Amino acid sequence: MSTAPPAPDMDRAQLVEVAAADLPRLVPLFAPDHPNLAFARAVIDGAIPGRAWAQFHNGAPVACLVATTAPFCLAAGALTPAFFAEAKRLLAGHGEVQLVHPPGPDNGAWAERAGFTTGQRLHFTHPRDGYIAPPPAVPDGYELVRIDADTFSGLESPMARSIFGTDTAQYIAHAVGFALVQDGRVAADAHGVLGGGLNELGTHIHPDHRRKGLAFVVLGAVNHWGCERGLRSVITCHEDKTPSISLARKLGLTEEFSYSIAKATC
């Protein structure tokens, strides 16, 4: 990962909210291999709802906090003990937080000092450029559909709602999703968070349709769609989440690296 800029004042983070028009100024703080980069870029691009705060030095951003409406929040730049303390304060009321941050010899200790606990996640992606995932086979009794405005507006998917909210027009303009439908009802849905040339995959299976292999089908559809458009598919999960690891590998993705997160309920 890229080297962060020189650290500013260790005693004061001074994070200020960044207006929507100024969000593109944060892009250089995120290296191409920053974990969950698609989420950060999607907020910056206005593709998913979120907020951002930054610390400035001589008029340039040197550190930032990007919060999505999902648990994923992302830190980048020159982090300090004060940064983590202020991030915890700014995220009050967010609920579950998984703060993704770049590696650093002291970042974990600083996060714990601010009231976070540490954890590890795994990052899976395609092993080579130009990879085209095959389209999935649709099981009998189900119909595979591209999620449109009507489907999204009636979607009962906590995962999708936490990431994309309820703005149907924003979803249709900036995201992609596929669903398996049976008897007019969504049995499984999968979506891609699009940003920075990446397609980060996530899925939700209705409780009545679990353990039928449907996650592989809907994720495979989003994976295939992204590959055909030159996007690199990504799946991330906690290091001990065996079903997600197996699913990522079944989709043709391989583990690229592990990374640290700071967890809290804010």
Rank of each mutant, 00 (worst) to 15 (best):
D240P: 00
I205T: 15
Y171V: 12
H204Q: 07
K212N: 07
S246Y: 03
R229F: 05
Q182M: 09
R210Q: 14
G220T: 11
I235R: 09
T242V: 15
G192A: 15
S244W: 01
S233F: 00
H209N: 01
D183L: 03
P243T: 06
A190L: 07
R211V: 04
S244I: 05
L198R: 14
A179N: 04
E239S: 15
L180N: 02
G220D: 10
E239L: 02
A190R: 07
R185D: 10
A173L: 06
Q182D: 09
N223D: 11
L214W: 03
D189E: 15
R185I: 06
D183A: 15
A187W: 06
R211A: 12
G177N: 07
R249K: 14
R229L: 06
L231C: 04
Q182V: 08
N199M: 08
S246Q: 13
T203D: 07
A215E: 02
L198C: 04
Y171A: 11
G230P: 07
V193C: 02
H238G: 13
V222I: 10
H191V: 13
E200G: 04
F216H: 12
G195L: 09
T242R: 12
A221C: 09
R249N: 12
D240H: 12
R232K: 13
A169I: 10
P243W: 07
E228V: 10
I245Q: 04
A188V: 11
R185G: 00
H238C: 05
V181C: 03
K241R: 09
L247V: 10
H204N: 12
V218N: 06
V234Q: 05
T203S: 13
V234S: 02
A248R: 08
G184L: 05
C227Q: 04
A248E: 09
A179I: 06
H204P: 01
F178S: 01
G197I: 06
I235Y: 12
R185C: 03
V217C: 07
G184K: 07
G192W: 00
V218I: 10
A215F: 03
W225P: 06
L219K: 15
P243D: 02
R249T: 11
S233D: 10
S246L: 13
H209F: 14
G197K: 08
A169K: 08
L201M: 12
L219H: 00
W225Y: 14
R210G: 13
I245S: 01
E228W: 05
A173S: 11
K241Q: 12
V217E: 04
L194R: 11
A215V: 12
L219G: 11
V176R: 03
G196W: 00
G230I: 13
H224C: 10
T236S: 14
W225K: 09
I245W: 01
E228Y: 04
D189N: 14
R249F: 00
L201P: 02
E228L: 14
R232E: 10
L214R: 07
V222K: 02
A215M: 02
H174P: 01
P207Q: 06
H206Q: 08
R232V: 12
